[in-house]
Structures are given as structure tokens and as C-alpha cells.
């Protein structure tokens, strides 16, 4: 059909002009998405390293290990999260969310884990976000981690806390394990109420199941820790068993 391809009539060139604009738009968007994906991968890898660092903690080196973890985390923020912030350039926070969400979730996981180990409290979203503001060019909107990514990261946190708890029981820090148990239960309860309202709650559903398993693993570990302890208390002789038993209940309930 010779006639139609030779044509470079007015209309056809309007169409071509328009499509070359669309092409530019798509090329730029895709390039940006790819850069964001790469930045996200870097954040993931390095946040994971921070989490491993936290797990190097024992009863005797806690301060030292956590200080290093915090330093590493700060480096992740300044190097890799900053690059994500730069790549996003203050726009497309929601459009490109899928491209950076995995990295941000892992970052939330690392940051909240450090904070909990240091202080026993939950690092709030506002606290994380205010830490990110200085990273961006003041002329553009600062990256704000959204509630969804924060909650998804928090859901993963419970898995790390489970690992931590079992390690703590081995180290004899039963109270710390109990503290983790209470903390994780609280997060689970809160997320259980929130999860159905989340945007695309398919991921979250899977994570809730994993989280419940983590809670149960911690509870089972505390259970067997308590049994070992009770053996310890009672083994001195069955005469004093009754008294000790009440003591134990008292001790445990005050944890």
C-alpha cells in the first residue's frame, strides 16, 4: 500500500509530533524508574547488612555492636537513601512506589530494629521521615516514606525480633525476651486491626501470617525458657516447691 506510507500530510505529522512527545515521556519515565530500582536494591542490600550487624549483639557487647549498627545505618541513609531521594527528585512518590518500596521497607526494618534494641521503643514514622528531610534539595518536596511501606517494614521487623528473642533466651536474658514478646504482640494486635484497611493488602495478609508464626515461636521459646527456669528453682527440693512456685508466678508476672 504505497499511498499511505509516502504520506507526510499535515495530520500525519501532527500525530508523529505527538507520539514523539509520548516517546520522550516514556523514555524518561522508564529511565527514572530503572535508576530508582537500582537505588532501592542498594538500600535493601545495605539495610540487610545493618540487620546482620544487630544480630551480632550478645549480653556482653551490646553497646559496641549497636553503636556500629547505628553508624552503618546512618551511612545507608546518607549514601543510599540520599541517592534514592535524588533520583526521585521530589516527584512521583506514588507513581514509582513499586520501584522503591522493597528498599524502603527493608530500611524501615533496619531502622526500627536498631531503635528497639537501643531503647526498647518503636521508631515512629515521623521520626524516620524527619531524618530524611535534610537529604533532599530544599527546592523540592522531601521524600516522605508512606504509611504503607512503614507498616510493611514493621511487619518484617517481627521476624528479626523473633531471631533476636531466641538468641536472648540462649544468652539467659529471659526478661529481654519477654520484653520482645510483649512488643511483638502489641505490634501484631495493632497491625491486625489496621491490615484490612491497607491499600493493596495482599502482601500484608501473607506478612500477617508470618508474623503470627513469629509471635508463636517467641511464645514457645519463652515457655520452654520458663520451664527450664522452673526446673532450676524446684530442683533444690520438693519441700520448698510450693513457696517457690508462688515466687515464680510473681516474678514472671512482673516481667
Amino acid at each position: 500500500p504505497r499511498m499511505m506510507t509516502a504520506a507526510a500530510s499535515g495530520e500525519s505529522s501532527v500525530m508523529k509530533d505527538a507520539f514523539s512527545r509520548y516517546a520522550d515521556y516514556l523514555n524518561q519515565l522508564n529511565d527514572k524508574r530503572e535508576r530508582v530500582v537500582k537505588a532501592s536494591r542498594d538500600i535493601t542490600i545495605n539495610s540487610k547488612k545493618v540487620i546482620f550487624q544487630v544480630h551480632r549483639m550478645s549480653k556482653y557487647n551490646r553497646e559496641e555492636v549497636l553503636d556500629k549498627a547505628e553508624k552503618d545505618l546512618a551511612a545507608v541513609t546518607e549514601q543510599y537513601v540520599a541517592r534514592l531521594v535524588k533520583e526521585l527528585g521530589g516527584t512521583d512518590f506514588w507513581k514509582l512506589r513499586r520501584a522503591y518500596s522493597p528498599g524502603v521497607q527493608e530500611y524501615v526494618e533496619a531502622a526500627t530494629l536498631c531503635k528497639f534494641c537501643k531503647t526498647g521503643t518503636l521508631l515512629n514514622l515521623d521520626e524516620i521521615n524527619s531524618g530524611l528531610s535534610p537529604l533532599s534539595d530544599p527546592s523540592v518536596d522531601p521524600l516522605q516514606i508512606n504509611v504503607l511501606d512503614y507498616l510493611l517494614g514493621l511487619a518484617d521487623l517481627t521476624g528479626e525480633l523473633m531471631r533476636l528473642a531466641i538468641g536472648r533466651i540462649s544468652d539467659g536474658e529471659l526478661e529481654f525476651a519477654e520484653k520482645i514478646c510483649r512488643f511483638v504482640r502489641e505490634i501484631y494486635r495493632e497491625l491486625k486491626l489496621l491490615a484490612p484497611s491497607m491499600d493493596d493488602n495482599h502482601d500484608m495478609k501473607t506478612k500477617m501470617d508470618t508474623m503470627l508464626q513469629s509471635v508463636v515461636k517467641i511464645e514457645n521459646a519463652c515457655f520452654s525458657g520458663c520451664l527450664t527456669w522452673s526446673d532450676k528453682v524446684f530442683s533444690s527440693g520438693s519441700q520448698r516447691r510450693k513457696n517457690y512456685r508462688w515466687l515464680l508466678i510473681h516474678l514472671l508476672s512482673s516481667l
Binding site: 500500500p1 499511498m3 499511505m4 506510507t5 504520506a7 495530520e11 500525519s12 500525530m15 508523529k16 505527538a18 507520539f19 514523539s20 509520548y22 516517546a23 516514556l26 523514555n27 522508564n30
Partner: peptide
Amino acid sequence: VLKFLTDLHAAFRMLNLR
């Protein structure tokens, strides 16, 4: 229609799609 669709198809081919 053929003329229109030929042009449109050519225009679309300018795009790099994922």
C-alpha cells in the same frame, strides 16, 4: 481506516515499551 491505522501503527512503533 487502513490509512489511519497504518499511520497510527507507525506512530506507536516510535515508542519503547516495557
